[in-house]
Amino acid sequence: LKGYACRHCFTTTSKDWHHGGRENILLCTDCRIHFKKYGELP
């Protein structure tokens, strides 16, 4: 998807986009997986 950027690491290239984190922000796949695993963003 074009025009998306992770609100945590600011990458614009991700296989998928997810809403997550404490504020339900837009996250890339890597940040979301880390959040689900550790309960915090990298």
Score class of each variant (00 low, 15 high):
21 G>E: 08
32 R>D: 13
26 L>A: 04
42 P>W: 02
16 D>T: 03
14 S>L: 01
21 G>A: 08
5 A>H: 14
42 P>E: 04
33 I>C: 15
34 H>V: 04
28 C>S: 00
30 D>V: 08
7 R>N: 09
4 Y>R: 08
19 H>P: 12
3 G>R: 09
21 G>Y: 01
10 F>C: 12
33 I>T: 14
31 C>Y: 00
14 S>M: 02
23 E>Q: 12
36 K>D: 14
21 G>Q: 06
28 C>R: 00
35 F>K: 10
20 G>A: 08
28 C>A: 00
12 T>E: 07
22 R>A: 14
42 P>Q: 03
38 Y>L: 09
2 K>T: 03
24 N>I: 04
36 K>F: 15
37 K>W: 09
13 T>L: 06
26 L>F: 03
35 F>M: 08
30 D>M: 08
29 T>E: 10
10 F>E: 14
25 I>D: 08
18 H>C: 12
3 G>I: 05
32 R>T: 10
16 D>F: 02
29 T>L: 10
38 Y>S: 13
7 R>D: 08
15 K>N: 03
6 C>V: 00
4 Y>S: 11
18 H>E: 13
36 K>P: 03
20 G>S: 06
18 H>A: 15
39 G>V: 02
29 T>S: 11
32 R>H: 12
41 L>S: 03
22 R>G: 12
39 G>S: 07
19 H>K: 12
36 K>A: 15
30 D>I: 02
16 D>P: 01
38 Y>A: 11
30 D>S: 10
1 L>C: 15
39 G>A: 09
39 G>K: 14
11 T>K: 07
31 C>S: 00
38 Y>M: 09
29 T>W: 12
7 R>H: 02
19 H>G: 11
1 L>Q: 05
6 C>S: 00
22 R>I: 08
4 Y>D: 12
29 T>I: 10
8 H>T: 02
35 F>W: 13
39 G>T: 04
38 Y>F: 11
11 T>M: 02
37 K>E: 12
8 H>Y: 05
4 Y>A: 06
22 R>S: 11
34 H>T: 06
30 D>W: 03
11 T>I: 06
34 H>S: 12
12 T>V: 03
5 A>L: 13
23 E>Y: 01
11 T>Y: 01
34 H>W: 13
40 E>C: 11
25 I>G: 05
26 L>I: 13
8 H>G: 06
9 C>M: 01
26 L>V: 07
17 W>M: 07
35 F>T: 06
25 I>C: 05
15 K>S: 08
42 P>D: 00
26 L>H: 03
36 K>Q: 15
36 K>T: 14
18 H>I: 11
3 G>D: 14
16 D>C: 01
12 T>Q: 08
27 L>A: 02
29 T>A: 11
8 H>M: 03
33 I>V: 15
20 G>R: 02
36 K>S: 14
22 R>M: 07
24 N>E: 10
17 W>A: 07
40 E>P: 01
11 T>C: 06
12 T>W: 01
15 K>I: 06
35 F>S: 07
31 C>V: 00
10 F>Q: 14
36 K>M: 10
35 F>A: 10
35 F>L: 11
18 H>R: 07
4 Y>C: 09
4 Y>P: 05
40 E>Y: 08
38 Y>R: 10
1 L>F: 14
32 R>L: 11
9 C>F: 01
12 T>F: 04
22 R>T: 14
40 E>W: 05
14 S>T: 06
19 H>N: 14
7 R>A: 15
9 C>D: 01
36 K>C: 09
34 H>R: 05
25 I>L: 12
42 P>R: 01
11 T>D: 04
41 L>H: 02
2 K>A: 09
38 Y>Q: 11
20 G>M: 06
4 Y>V: 07
16 D>K: 08
21 G>P: 05
24 N>W: 07
26 L>M: 14
2 K>E: 12
2 K>I: 05
37 K>Y: 08
5 A>W: 14
23 E>A: 09
32 R>C: 09
13 T>Y: 06
37 K>P: 04
1 L>I: 15
14 S>G: 04
9 C>E: 04
40 E>V: 12
29 T>P: 03
31 C>L: 00
18 H>T: 13
12 T>C: 04
30 D>N: 10
9 C>K: 03
40 E>L: 09
27 L>F: 02
29 T>R: 09
36 K>R: 13
12 T>M: 05
4 Y>F: 12
5 A>R: 14
40 E>R: 08
37 K>A: 12
19 H>C: 12
38 Y>P: 06
32 R>M: 13
24 N>M: 09
28 C>T: 00
36 K>G: 15
33 I>F: 10
10 F>Y: 10
13 T>M: 07
11 T>F: 01
19 H>S: 13
22 R>Y: 15
14 S>P: 03
9 C>Y: 02
29 T>M: 07
8 H>R: 06
15 K>Y: 06
28 C>I: 00
29 T>H: 02
32 R>P: 01
2 K>C: 09
34 H>G: 07
2 K>H: 03
40 E>A: 11
20 G>L: 04
20 G>I: 08
20 G>V: 09
34 H>F: 06
9 C>T: 02
14 S>Y: 02
5 A>M: 12
22 R>D: 13
18 H>S: 13
19 H>M: 14
10 F>N: 05
35 F>R: 05
9 C>Q: 02
8 H>I: 04
39 G>W: 04
25 I>H: 08
32 R>F: 14
25 I>E: 12
28 C>L: 00
39 G>R: 09
22 R>V: 12
15 K>T: 13
10 F>M: 10
5 A>D: 13
16 D>Q: 02
1 L>R: 10
13 T>V: 09
23 E>T: 10
6 C>R: 00
10 F>I: 03
34 H>L: 04
35 F>D: 09
41 L>A: 04
40 E>I: 10
26 L>W: 07
41 L>Q: 03
22 R>P: 13
25 I>A: 09
6 C>Y: 00
23 E>P: 06
25 I>K: 07
11 T>A: 09
11 T>N: 08
21 G>L: 05
33 I>H: 14
18 H>K: 15
35 F>P: 02
34 H>E: 05
26 L>D: 05
24 N>L: 07
29 T>C: 10
9 C>P: 01
2 K>M: 10
27 L>S: 01
18 H>L: 12
19 H>F: 11
21 G>N: 01
5 A>G: 14
5 A>N: 09
25 I>N: 04
35 F>H: 13
27 L>C: 06
24 N>Q: 13
6 C>H: 01
36 K>L: 11
24 N>A: 08
27 L>Q: 01
14 S>A: 06
29 T>D: 08
29 T>K: 08
31 C>D: 01
15 K>M: 11
25 I>W: 11
39 G>L: 05
1 L>M: 15
33 I>L: 15
5 A>P: 03
12 T>P: 04
3 G>P: 07
15 K>F: 07
20 G>E: 11
23 E>V: 03
33 I>A: 15
30 D>K: 10
37 K>Q: 13
27 L>I: 07
31 C>Q: 00
4 Y>E: 09
19 H>E: 14
27 L>T: 04
1 L>E: 14
20 G>D: 15
37 K>R: 13
6 C>E: 01
39 G>N: 14
17 W>K: 05
41 L>R: 03
31 C>E: 00
17 W>N: 05
14 S>R: 02
32 R>E: 12
18 H>G: 15
12 T>A: 06
8 H>L: 01
18 H>F: 13
31 C>A: 00
26 L>K: 05
40 E>H: 09
23 E>K: 09
30 D>T: 15
15 K>R: 11
17 W>H: 08
14 S>N: 02
32 R>V: 08
36 K>N: 15
24 N>C: 03
4 Y>K: 07
22 R>N: 13
26 L>P: 06
16 D>N: 04
27 L>K: 01
13 T>K: 14
33 I>P: 02
39 G>P: 02
5 A>T: 14
26 L>G: 04
33 I>M: 13
32 R>K: 09
31 C>H: 00
9 C>V: 02
24 N>H: 10
10 F>W: 11
10 F>K: 14
5 A>E: 14
38 Y>T: 15
14 S>W: 01
21 G>T: 10
17 W>I: 14
15 K>H: 12
38 Y>V: 14
34 H>I: 02
19 H>T: 15
14 S>E: 06
23 E>M: 07
6 C>G: 00
21 G>F: 03
8 H>A: 07
3 G>A: 12
10 F>H: 15
41 L>K: 04
1 L>A: 15
12 T>R: 08
20 G>Y: 02
6 C>D: 00
3 G>L: 06
24 N>G: 13
2 K>P: 03
13 T>Q: 12
39 G>I: 01
